[in-house]
Design a protein around this nucleic acid. Sequence first.
DNA 1: TTGCGAGGTCACGGGATCGTCACGCCTTCC
DNA 2: GGAAGGCGTGACGATCCCGTGACCTCGCAA
Lengths: 236, 236
Amino acid sequence: MSVQGPAAGAKPPRVLVVDDEPQIVRALKVVLREAGFEAVPAETASEALDLAAVRPPEAAIVDLVLPDLDGIEVTRRLREWSEMPILVLSAVGEEEQKVRALEAGADDYITKPFGTRELVARLQAALRRAGRVEGEPSIDVDGLEIDLAARVVRRDGEPIHLTPIEFDLLRALARNRGRLMTHRKLLAEVWGPEYVDDIQPLRTHIARLRAKIEPDGVETPRYIVTDPGVGYRFTD
Amino acid sequence: MSVQGPAAGAKPPRVLVVDDEPQIVRALKVVLREAGFEAVPAETASEALDLAAVRPPEAAIVDLVLPDLDGIEVTRRLREWSEMPILVLSAVGEEEQKVRALEAGADDYITKPFGTRELVARLQAALRRAGRVEGEPSIDVDGLEIDLAARVVRRDGEPIHLTPIEFDLLRALARNRGRLMTHRKLLAEVWGPEYVDDIQPLRTHIARLRAKIEPDGVETPRYIVTDPGVGYRFTD
DNA sequence: TTGCGAGGTCACGGGATCGTCACGCCTTCC
DNA sequence: GGAAGGCGTGACGATCCCGTGACCTCGCAA
Protein backbone atom coordinates (compact mmCIF):
# COMPACT_ATOMS: atom_id res chain seq x y z
CA MET A 1 0.00 0.00 0.00
CA SER A 2 1.20 3.47 -0.82
CA VAL A 3 0.30 6.78 0.67
CA GLN A 4 -2.66 8.05 -1.21
CA GLY A 5 -2.44 11.49 -2.71
CA PRO A 6 -5.21 13.63 -4.13
CA ALA A 7 -8.25 12.09 -5.75
CA ALA A 8 -7.29 9.92 -8.70
CA GLY A 9 -8.59 11.05 -12.06
CA ALA A 10 -8.23 14.76 -11.45
CA LYS A 11 -5.15 16.40 -12.88
CA PRO A 12 -2.35 16.17 -10.37
CA PRO A 13 -1.60 19.22 -8.21
CA ARG A 14 1.63 20.93 -9.23
CA VAL A 15 4.35 21.29 -6.64
CA LEU A 16 7.25 23.64 -7.25
CA VAL A 17 10.54 21.98 -6.25
CA VAL A 18 13.44 24.39 -5.82
CA ASP A 19 16.82 22.78 -5.31
CA ASP A 20 20.16 23.03 -7.08
CA GLU A 21 21.17 19.44 -6.37
CA PRO A 22 20.00 17.33 -9.30
CA GLN A 23 19.80 14.10 -7.35
CA ILE A 24 17.47 15.63 -4.79
CA VAL A 25 15.23 17.00 -7.50
CA ARG A 26 15.17 13.66 -9.23
CA ALA A 27 14.32 11.83 -6.03
CA LEU A 28 11.56 14.25 -5.15
CA LYS A 29 10.11 13.98 -8.61
CA VAL A 30 9.67 10.24 -8.18
CA VAL A 31 8.33 10.49 -4.65
CA LEU A 32 5.84 13.20 -5.55
CA ARG A 33 4.63 11.41 -8.64
CA GLU A 34 3.97 8.29 -6.61
CA ALA A 35 1.99 10.37 -4.14
CA GLY A 36 -0.06 11.84 -6.95
CA PHE A 37 1.63 15.19 -7.48
CA GLU A 38 3.42 16.75 -10.41
CA ALA A 39 6.83 18.17 -9.62
CA VAL A 40 7.83 21.44 -11.29
CA PRO A 41 11.60 21.68 -10.92
CA ALA A 42 13.66 24.85 -10.59
CA GLU A 43 17.37 25.15 -9.89
CA THR A 44 17.61 28.76 -8.81
CA ALA A 45 15.55 31.20 -6.79
CA SER A 46 14.89 33.52 -9.70
CA GLU A 47 13.83 30.65 -11.92
CA ALA A 48 11.49 29.45 -9.21
CA LEU A 49 9.93 32.88 -8.70
CA ASP A 50 9.42 33.27 -12.43
CA LEU A 51 7.81 29.86 -12.76
CA ALA A 52 5.54 30.51 -9.82
CA ALA A 53 4.48 33.86 -11.22
CA VAL A 54 3.68 32.51 -14.67
CA ARG A 55 1.65 29.56 -13.45
CA PRO A 56 1.18 29.39 -9.68
CA PRO A 57 1.64 25.86 -8.33
CA GLU A 58 -0.42 24.33 -5.55
CA ALA A 59 2.55 24.27 -3.16
CA ALA A 60 6.31 24.75 -3.04
CA ILE A 61 9.23 22.81 -1.59
CA VAL A 62 12.25 25.08 -1.29
CA ASP A 63 15.80 24.19 -0.36
CA LEU A 64 17.41 26.60 2.06
CA VAL A 65 20.63 26.84 0.06
CA LEU A 66 20.35 28.11 -3.47
CA PRO A 67 22.85 29.69 -5.90
CA ASP A 68 21.32 33.17 -5.95
CA LEU A 69 18.94 33.87 -3.05
CA ASP A 70 18.35 31.66 -0.04
CA GLY A 71 15.17 29.73 0.66
CA ILE A 72 14.00 32.21 3.27
CA GLU A 73 14.10 35.07 0.81
CA VAL A 74 12.24 32.94 -1.73
CA THR A 75 9.61 32.25 0.90
CA ARG A 76 9.28 35.95 1.63
CA ARG A 77 8.92 36.85 -2.04
CA LEU A 78 6.31 34.18 -2.62
CA ARG A 79 4.38 35.30 0.44
CA GLU A 80 4.13 38.78 -1.01
CA TRP A 81 1.38 37.58 -3.27
CA SER A 82 0.59 33.94 -2.57
CA GLU A 83 -0.81 31.87 0.27
CA MET A 84 0.44 28.59 -1.14
CA PRO A 85 1.93 26.07 1.33
CA ILE A 86 5.72 26.40 1.44
CA LEU A 87 7.98 23.70 2.88
CA VAL A 88 11.59 24.67 3.50
CA LEU A 89 14.21 21.95 3.17
CA SER A 90 17.64 22.10 4.74
CA ALA A 91 20.64 20.07 5.74
CA VAL A 92 21.26 22.27 8.75
CA GLY A 93 18.90 21.95 11.67
CA GLU A 94 19.95 25.16 13.33
CA GLU A 95 17.13 26.66 15.32
CA GLU A 96 17.77 30.23 14.22
CA GLN A 97 17.23 29.25 10.60
CA LYS A 98 14.04 27.39 11.38
CA VAL A 99 12.59 30.34 13.26
CA ARG A 100 13.48 32.76 10.49
CA ALA A 101 11.99 30.54 7.82
CA LEU A 102 8.75 30.04 9.72
CA GLU A 103 8.49 33.74 10.49
CA ALA A 104 9.01 34.52 6.82
CA GLY A 105 5.84 32.55 6.17
CA ALA A 106 6.98 28.97 5.64
CA ASP A 107 4.52 26.27 6.69
CA ASP A 108 7.11 23.69 7.67
CA TYR A 109 10.84 23.22 7.99
CA ILE A 110 12.27 19.80 7.27
CA THR A 111 15.87 18.82 7.91
CA LYS A 112 17.75 16.42 5.67
CA PRO A 113 18.00 13.54 5.65
CA PHE A 114 14.25 13.08 5.74
CA GLY A 115 12.02 10.15 5.08
CA THR A 116 10.08 10.43 1.85
CA ARG A 117 6.87 9.31 3.49
CA GLU A 118 7.28 11.98 6.14
CA LEU A 119 7.82 14.61 3.50
CA VAL A 120 4.69 13.57 1.66
CA ALA A 121 2.72 13.47 4.88
CA ARG A 122 3.85 16.96 5.81
CA LEU A 123 3.07 18.25 2.35
CA GLN A 124 -0.40 16.79 2.51
CA ALA A 125 -0.95 18.19 5.98
CA ALA A 126 0.01 21.64 4.75
CA LEU A 127 -2.23 21.31 1.70
CA ARG A 128 -5.13 20.13 3.80
CA ARG A 129 -4.71 23.17 5.99
CA ALA A 130 -4.45 25.57 3.08
CA GLY A 131 -7.13 23.93 1.00
CA ARG A 132 -9.90 26.04 2.40
CA VAL A 133 -8.57 29.32 1.13
CA GLU A 134 -7.91 30.17 -2.45
CA GLY A 135 -5.09 32.60 -2.79
CA GLU A 136 -5.60 35.24 -5.41
CA PRO A 137 -2.49 36.06 -7.38
CA SER A 138 -4.33 38.94 -8.98
CA ILE A 139 -7.08 41.21 -7.75
CA ASP A 140 -9.63 42.81 -10.02
CA VAL A 141 -11.99 45.45 -8.72
CA ASP A 142 -14.17 47.62 -10.88
CA GLY A 143 -11.72 48.14 -13.71
CA LEU A 144 -8.63 48.19 -11.53
CA GLU A 145 -6.46 45.12 -11.94
CA ILE A 146 -3.62 44.34 -9.55
CA ASP A 147 -1.21 41.58 -10.50
CA LEU A 148 0.48 40.80 -7.21
CA ALA A 149 3.07 38.44 -8.61
CA ALA A 150 4.20 40.62 -11.51
CA ARG A 151 3.82 43.85 -9.52
CA VAL A 152 1.76 45.35 -12.32
CA VAL A 153 -1.34 47.51 -12.00
CA ARG A 154 -3.75 48.20 -14.84
CA ARG A 155 -6.84 50.36 -15.11
CA ASP A 156 -9.17 49.43 -17.94
CA GLY A 157 -6.29 47.49 -19.45
CA GLU A 158 -3.92 50.44 -19.43
CA PRO A 159 -0.82 49.79 -17.33
CA ILE A 160 -0.11 52.30 -14.57
CA HIS A 161 3.38 52.88 -13.29
CA LEU A 162 3.66 52.79 -9.50
CA THR A 163 6.72 53.37 -7.37
CA PRO A 164 7.73 50.58 -4.94
CA ILE A 165 6.12 52.25 -1.94
CA GLU A 166 2.96 53.01 -3.85
CA PHE A 167 2.64 49.41 -4.97
CA ASP A 168 3.30 48.01 -1.50
CA LEU A 169 0.69 50.37 -0.11
CA LEU A 170 -1.87 49.37 -2.70
CA ARG A 171 -1.09 45.70 -2.15
CA ALA A 172 -1.49 45.96 1.60
CA LEU A 173 -4.84 47.66 1.11
CA ALA A 174 -6.10 45.40 -1.65
CA ARG A 175 -5.22 42.18 0.16
CA ASN A 176 -7.44 43.31 2.99
CA ARG A 177 -10.29 44.39 0.76
CA GLY A 178 -13.17 45.86 2.73
CA ARG A 179 -11.23 45.70 5.96
CA LEU A 180 -9.99 48.84 7.58
CA MET A 181 -6.22 49.24 7.73
CA THR A 182 -5.08 51.51 10.52
CA HIS A 183 -2.27 53.97 9.96
CA ARG A 184 0.00 51.96 12.21
CA LYS A 185 -0.73 48.72 10.42
CA LEU A 186 -0.03 50.18 7.01
CA LEU A 187 3.14 51.86 8.20
CA ALA A 188 4.36 48.65 9.82
CA GLU A 189 3.67 46.63 6.71
CA VAL A 190 5.12 49.01 4.14
CA TRP A 191 7.81 50.97 5.98
CA GLY A 192 8.57 48.60 8.86
CA PRO A 193 7.56 48.29 12.51
CA GLU A 194 9.77 51.18 13.62
CA TYR A 195 7.88 53.73 11.51
CA VAL A 196 4.41 53.21 12.93
CA ASP A 197 4.17 56.84 14.02
CA ASP A 198 5.31 58.61 10.86
CA ILE A 199 1.90 59.38 9.48
CA GLN A 200 2.80 62.26 7.20
CA PRO A 201 4.71 60.20 4.60
CA LEU A 202 1.74 57.85 4.55
CA ARG A 203 -0.58 60.73 3.73
CA THR A 204 1.67 61.94 0.96
CA HIS A 205 1.93 58.55 -0.69
CA ILE A 206 -1.78 57.91 -0.40
CA ALA A 207 -2.32 61.19 -2.21
CA ARG A 208 0.12 60.25 -4.96
CA LEU A 209 -1.41 56.79 -5.26
CA ARG A 210 -4.90 58.22 -5.56
CA ALA A 211 -3.78 60.64 -8.23
CA LYS A 212 -2.65 57.65 -10.28
CA ILE A 213 -5.46 55.16 -9.82
CA GLU A 214 -8.60 57.11 -8.98
CA PRO A 215 -10.56 57.80 -12.17
CA ASP A 216 -13.04 60.53 -11.20
CA GLY A 217 -10.64 62.94 -9.64
CA VAL A 218 -9.87 62.50 -6.00
CA GLU A 219 -13.06 64.09 -4.73
CA THR A 220 -15.03 60.86 -4.67
CA PRO A 221 -12.50 58.07 -4.11
CA ARG A 222 -13.66 54.86 -5.74
CA TYR A 223 -10.94 52.60 -4.43
CA ILE A 224 -9.21 54.07 -1.40
CA VAL A 225 -11.49 55.68 1.14
CA THR A 226 -10.43 57.51 4.26
CA ASP A 227 -11.68 56.65 7.70
CA PRO A 228 -10.83 59.87 9.54
CA GLY A 229 -8.86 59.30 12.68
CA VAL A 230 -8.40 55.60 12.03
CA GLY A 231 -6.92 54.68 8.67
CA TYR A 232 -7.76 53.72 5.11
CA ARG A 233 -9.87 51.09 3.46
CA PHE A 234 -9.90 49.51 0.00
CA THR A 235 -13.40 49.45 -1.42
CA ASP A 236 -15.01 46.04 -1.36
CA MET B 1 13.90 42.13 20.14
CA SER B 2 11.83 39.14 21.15
CA VAL B 3 9.47 37.01 19.17
CA GLN B 4 6.18 38.78 19.25
CA GLY B 5 3.10 36.87 20.13
CA PRO B 6 -0.50 37.86 19.46
CA ALA B 7 -1.56 41.47 19.68
CA ALA B 8 -0.86 42.90 23.09
CA GLY B 9 -3.87 44.01 25.04
CA ALA B 10 -6.17 41.25 23.87
CA LYS B 11 -6.62 38.33 26.21
CA PRO B 12 -4.02 35.69 25.46
CA PRO B 13 -4.97 32.73 23.24
CA ARG B 14 -5.31 29.51 25.21
CA VAL B 15 -3.16 26.55 24.25
CA LEU B 16 -3.96 23.10 25.54
CA VAL B 17 -0.78 21.33 26.70
CA VAL B 18 -1.13 17.58 27.11
CA ASP B 19 1.82 15.81 28.69
CA ASP B 20 2.24 13.54 31.70
CA GLU B 21 5.76 14.74 32.49
CA PRO B 22 5.42 17.63 34.94
CA GLN B 23 8.73 19.25 34.05
CA ILE B 24 7.78 19.47 30.38
CA VAL B 25 4.44 21.03 31.24
CA ARG B 26 6.11 23.51 33.53
CA ALA B 27 8.67 24.46 30.91
CA LEU B 28 6.05 24.88 28.22
CA LYS B 29 3.96 27.03 30.52
CA VAL B 30 6.80 29.49 30.90
CA VAL B 31 7.72 29.48 27.23
CA LEU B 32 4.15 29.98 26.10
CA ARG B 33 3.47 32.75 28.56
CA GLU B 34 6.54 34.63 27.35
CA ALA B 35 5.28 34.27 23.80
CA GLY B 36 1.90 35.68 24.80
CA PHE B 37 -0.12 32.52 25.20
CA GLU B 38 -1.91 30.94 28.13
CA ALA B 39 -1.14 27.27 28.73
CA VAL B 40 -3.98 24.99 29.77
CA PRO B 41 -2.33 21.86 31.22
CA ALA B 42 -3.68 18.32 31.09
CA GLU B 43 -1.93 15.12 32.19
CA THR B 44 -4.03 12.52 30.47
CA ALA B 45 -5.82 12.12 27.17
CA SER B 46 -9.24 11.96 28.71
CA GLU B 47 -8.61 15.02 30.81
CA ALA B 48 -7.43 16.87 27.70
CA LEU B 49 -10.47 15.88 25.68
CA ASP B 50 -12.78 16.96 28.49
CA LEU B 51 -11.05 20.30 28.85
CA ALA B 52 -11.15 20.93 25.11
CA ALA B 53 -14.83 20.06 24.96
CA VAL B 54 -15.79 22.34 27.83
CA ARG B 55 -13.87 25.35 26.57
CA PRO B 56 -12.14 24.90 23.22
CA PRO B 57 -8.61 26.33 23.20
CA GLU B 58 -7.02 28.16 20.29
CA ALA B 59 -4.53 25.32 19.70
CA ALA B 60 -3.19 22.12 21.26
CA ILE B 61 0.25 20.67 21.93
CA VAL B 62 0.00 16.93 22.53
CA ASP B 63 2.68 14.51 23.68
CA LEU B 64 2.73 11.24 21.80
CA VAL B 65 3.02 9.13 24.95
CA LEU B 66 0.23 9.47 27.47
CA PRO B 67 -1.02 7.21 30.29
CA ASP B 68 -4.36 6.29 28.73
CA LEU B 69 -4.54 6.98 24.98
CA ASP B 70 -1.68 8.02 22.72
CA GLY B 71 -1.29 11.42 21.11
CA ILE B 72 -2.42 10.19 17.72
CA GLU B 73 -5.72 9.03 19.13
CA VAL B 74 -6.14 12.36 20.90
CA THR B 75 -5.50 14.11 17.60
CA ARG B 76 -8.10 11.97 15.88
CA ARG B 77 -10.73 12.63 18.55
CA LEU B 78 -10.11 16.36 18.48
CA ARG B 79 -10.33 16.41 14.69
CA GLU B 80 -13.78 14.88 14.87
CA TRP B 81 -15.16 18.24 15.80
CA SER B 82 -12.43 20.85 15.77
CA GLU B 83 -10.09 22.46 13.24
CA MET B 84 -7.76 23.83 15.86
CA PRO B 85 -4.02 23.57 15.15
CA ILE B 86 -2.55 20.46 16.79
CA LEU B 87 1.18 19.99 17.35
CA VAL B 88 2.34 16.50 18.30
CA LEU B 89 5.38 16.19 20.53
CA SER B 90 7.52 13.09 20.79
CA ALA B 91 10.86 11.74 21.91
CA VAL B 92 10.89 9.19 19.12
CA GLY B 93 11.59 10.43 15.62
CA GLU B 94 10.38 7.31 13.92
CA GLU B 95 8.94 8.05 10.52
CA GLU B 96 5.98 5.72 10.86
CA GLN B 97 4.76 7.64 13.88
CA LYS B 98 5.13 10.99 12.17
CA VAL B 99 3.16 9.87 9.15
CA ARG B 100 0.39 8.43 11.28
CA ALA B 101 0.16 11.57 13.38
CA LEU B 102 0.02 13.85 10.37
CA GLU B 103 -2.52 11.64 8.66
CA ALA B 104 -4.63 11.71 11.78
CA GLY B 105 -4.87 15.44 11.31
CA ALA B 106 -1.93 16.88 13.22
CA ASP B 107 -0.49 20.10 11.85
CA ASP B 108 3.08 19.44 12.91
CA TYR B 109 5.23 16.82 14.54
CA ILE B 110 8.12 17.95 16.69
CA THR B 111 10.75 15.60 18.13
CA LYS B 112 12.30 16.15 21.52
CA PRO B 113 14.59 17.70 22.39
CA PHE B 114 13.35 20.81 20.64
CA GLY B 115 14.29 24.45 20.89
CA THR B 116 11.69 26.57 22.57
CA ARG B 117 11.91 29.28 19.93
CA GLU B 118 11.32 26.70 17.22
CA LEU B 119 8.30 25.41 19.08
CA VAL B 120 6.82 28.87 19.38
CA ALA B 121 7.58 29.64 15.74
CA ARG B 122 5.86 26.43 14.63
CA LEU B 123 2.88 27.15 16.86
CA GLN B 124 2.56 30.63 15.43
CA ALA B 125 2.90 29.35 11.88
CA ALA B 126 0.08 26.87 12.50
CA LEU B 127 -2.07 29.55 14.09
CA ARG B 128 -1.40 31.98 11.27
CA ARG B 129 -2.58 29.35 8.84
CA ALA B 130 -5.68 28.55 10.85
CA GLY B 131 -6.48 32.18 11.47
CA ARG B 132 -7.41 32.85 7.87
CA VAL B 133 -9.94 30.09 7.85
CA GLU B 134 -11.89 30.83 10.94
CA GLY B 135 -14.80 33.18 10.46
CA GLU B 136 -14.09 36.75 11.34
CA PRO B 137 -15.56 37.86 14.60
CA SER B 138 -18.77 39.56 13.64
CA ILE B 139 -21.91 40.23 15.57
CA ASP B 140 -25.29 40.11 13.92
CA VAL B 141 -28.40 41.26 15.76
CA ASP B 142 -31.72 41.80 14.11
CA GLY B 143 -30.50 43.41 10.91
CA LEU B 144 -27.54 45.18 12.49
CA GLU B 145 -24.23 43.64 11.52
CA ILE B 146 -21.00 44.56 13.28
CA ASP B 147 -17.80 43.26 11.74
CA LEU B 148 -15.15 43.76 14.38
CA ALA B 149 -12.18 42.75 12.25
CA ALA B 150 -13.11 44.87 9.26
CA ARG B 151 -14.39 47.69 11.46
CA VAL B 152 -17.59 47.90 9.44
CA VAL B 153 -21.16 48.33 10.59
CA ARG B 154 -24.10 47.53 8.33
CA ARG B 155 -27.85 47.79 8.77
CA ASP B 156 -29.83 45.65 6.36
CA GLY B 157 -26.71 45.36 4.24
CA GLU B 158 -26.18 49.11 3.97
CA PRO B 159 -22.86 50.25 5.40
CA ILE B 160 -23.01 52.94 8.05
CA HIS B 161 -20.14 55.29 8.69
CA LEU B 162 -19.18 55.63 12.34
CA THR B 163 -16.59 57.91 13.90
CA PRO B 164 -13.88 56.27 16.03
CA ILE B 165 -15.61 56.97 19.34
CA GLU B 166 -18.96 55.84 18.04
CA PHE B 167 -17.50 52.58 16.83
CA ASP B 168 -15.60 51.94 20.04
CA LEU B 169 -18.75 52.62 21.99
CA LEU B 170 -20.82 50.26 19.89
CA ARG B 171 -18.14 47.61 20.08
CA ALA B 172 -17.93 47.83 23.85
CA LEU B 173 -21.69 47.47 24.09
CA ALA B 174 -22.03 44.72 21.52
CA ARG B 175 -19.23 42.65 23.02
CA ASN B 176 -21.19 42.55 26.25
CA ARG B 177 -24.48 41.84 24.59
CA GLY B 178 -27.34 41.65 27.09
CA ARG B 179 -25.12 42.70 29.96
CA LEU B 180 -25.43 46.09 31.54
CA MET B 181 -22.54 48.49 30.93
CA THR B 182 -22.32 51.19 33.56
CA HIS B 183 -21.39 54.73 32.61
CA ARG B 184 -18.05 54.37 34.33
CA LYS B 185 -17.25 51.12 32.57
CA LEU B 186 -18.04 52.53 29.16
CA LEU B 187 -16.09 55.69 29.82
CA ALA B 188 -13.11 53.72 31.06
CA GLU B 189 -13.13 51.45 28.03
CA VAL B 190 -13.62 54.06 25.33
CA TRP B 191 -12.10 57.25 26.75
CA GLY B 192 -9.71 55.82 29.34
CA PRO B 193 -9.70 55.26 33.08
CA GLU B 194 -9.25 58.94 33.88
CA TYR B 195 -12.54 59.97 32.28
CA VAL B 196 -14.91 57.81 34.28
CA ASP B 197 -16.88 60.83 35.53
CA ASP B 198 -17.42 62.74 32.27
CA ILE B 199 -20.91 61.50 31.58
CA GLN B 200 -22.08 64.26 29.29
CA PRO B 201 -19.82 63.35 26.33
CA LEU B 202 -21.05 59.80 26.72
CA ARG B 203 -24.64 60.96 26.44
CA THR B 204 -23.87 63.00 23.36
CA HIS B 205 -22.17 60.15 21.57
CA ILE B 206 -24.86 57.67 22.51
CA ALA B 207 -27.35 60.06 20.94
CA ARG B 208 -25.31 60.37 17.77
CA LEU B 209 -24.84 56.61 17.62
CA ARG B 210 -28.54 55.99 18.01
CA ALA B 211 -29.35 58.48 15.29
CA LYS B 212 -27.21 56.44 12.95
CA ILE B 213 -28.17 52.87 13.78
CA GLU B 214 -31.65 52.93 15.27
CA PRO B 215 -34.21 52.35 12.50
CA ASP B 216 -37.55 53.44 14.00
CA GLY B 217 -36.56 56.84 15.23
CA VAL B 218 -35.01 57.01 18.63
CA GLU B 219 -38.25 56.81 20.58
CA THR B 220 -38.17 53.05 20.91
CA PRO B 221 -34.51 52.03 20.86
CA ARG B 222 -34.09 48.60 19.34
CA TYR B 223 -30.41 48.13 19.98
CA ILE B 224 -29.17 50.45 22.71
CA VAL B 225 -31.49 50.70 25.68
CA THR B 226 -31.04 53.00 28.65
CA ASP B 227 -30.88 51.74 32.17
CA PRO B 228 -31.81 54.92 34.03
CA GLY B 229 -29.30 55.90 36.64
CA VAL B 230 -26.94 53.06 35.80
CA GLY B 231 -25.84 52.81 32.20
CA TYR B 232 -26.64 51.28 28.84
CA ARG B 233 -27.29 47.82 27.51
CA PHE B 234 -27.08 46.27 24.04
CA THR B 235 -30.21 44.31 23.23
CA ASP B 236 -29.67 40.58 23.14
C1' DT C 1 -48.41 73.16 40.92
C1' DT C 2 -43.68 73.60 41.47
C1' DG C 3 -39.02 72.09 42.03
C1' DC C 4 -35.47 68.84 40.88
C1' DG C 5 -32.55 65.51 38.83
C1' DA C 6 -31.51 62.50 34.98
C1' DG C 7 -31.42 61.81 30.25
C1' DG C 8 -31.74 63.48 25.35
C1' DT C 9 -30.96 66.93 21.75
C1' DC C 10 -28.85 70.60 19.34
C1' DA C 11 -25.68 74.30 17.60
C1' DC C 12 -21.32 75.96 18.02
C1' DG C 13 -16.36 76.53 18.26
C1' DG C 14 -11.76 74.72 19.17
C1' DG C 15 -8.55 71.65 17.73
C1' DA C 16 -6.89 67.67 15.69
C1' DT C 17 -6.54 65.42 11.33
C1' DC C 18 -6.36 65.30 6.30
C1' DG C 19 -5.03 66.46 1.48
C1' DT C 20 -2.01 69.00 -1.22
C1' DC C 21 1.84 71.33 -2.94
C1' DA C 22 6.55 72.98 -3.48
C1' DC C 23 11.08 72.06 -2.27
C1' DG C 24 15.45 69.62 -1.44
C1' DC C 25 18.00 65.36 -0.72
C1' DC C 26 19.19 61.01 -2.28
C1' DT C 27 19.81 57.16 -5.38
C1' DT C 28 20.03 55.30 -9.89
C1' DC C 29 20.90 55.13 -14.53
C1' DC C 30 22.70 56.92 -18.53
C1' DG D 1 29.09 63.87 -14.14
C1' DG D 2 24.50 65.17 -15.30
C1' DA D 3 19.51 64.03 -15.49
C1' DA D 4 15.48 61.92 -13.80
C1' DG D 5 12.78 59.68 -10.67
C1' DG D 6 11.61 58.44 -5.84
C1' DC D 7 11.06 59.93 -1.31
C1' DG D 8 10.50 62.72 3.03
C1' DT D 9 9.61 67.34 4.99
C1' DG D 10 7.21 71.37 6.23
C1' DA D 11 3.56 74.62 5.55
C1' DC D 12 -1.01 75.75 4.35
C1' DG D 13 -6.13 75.69 3.83
C1' DA D 14 -10.07 72.44 4.22
C1' DT D 15 -12.41 69.12 6.58
C1' DC D 16 -14.04 66.40 10.25
C1' DC D 17 -14.57 65.02 15.01
C1' DC D 18 -15.57 65.93 19.59
C1' DG D 19 -16.54 68.36 23.97
C1' DT D 20 -19.22 72.09 25.81
C1' DG D 21 -23.09 74.45 27.38
C1' DA D 22 -27.86 75.60 26.87
C1' DC D 23 -32.37 73.96 26.53
C1' DC D 24 -35.78 70.40 26.31
C1' DT D 25 -38.63 66.45 28.04
C1' DC D 26 -39.91 63.12 31.42
C1' DG D 27 -40.79 61.17 35.93
C1' DC D 28 -41.24 61.87 40.69
C1' DA D 29 -41.83 63.85 45.10
C1' DA D 30 -42.74 67.73 48.00
